[in-house]
Amino acid sequence: MNEQRTDILGMLAEGKITAKEAERLIAALERDQPPAASSPDARPKGKAKYLRLMVDTLDETGEPGRINVRVPLQLLRAGVQLAALIPPQALDRANAKLNDSGVPFDLTRLKPEQLQALVEHLDEMTLEVDQPDAKVRVFCE
């Protein structure tokens, strides 16, 4: 589109078209611009509705595998509220198990508001892993 815009400006500079015609042509160009492709770079910030997980793999036999998961962010927000419903005794048991597994993490200190804030900022996250036999992308769209 930049090329066409340059052409229009060139014609204007050469006097082949008037400023008004140039303005109309540029406006028409902008109207005809195709919608942005669904990519993490192309989408506007703060408008994400879905969390996407895309995995492309190639196993030892050369057979391709593909995982494509789309989860509404609204579902994550609702799921976060489940954290507030976990009984304290269950959290204590989970803490003990985590501790036994070498993860000294206190789940009782994790507040639903913090999880909510985490989900709110997910749309700024893009995770890409490139391996010769696998490619993983996690992003919001």
Binding site: Y50, D59, I67, L75
Partner: peptide
């Protein structure tokens, strides 16, 4: 919140 959820797994 479930509408829009999609799981597509191929091998």
């Amino acid at each position: 919140a479930l509408p829009g959820t999609r799981f597509d797994i191929e091998h």
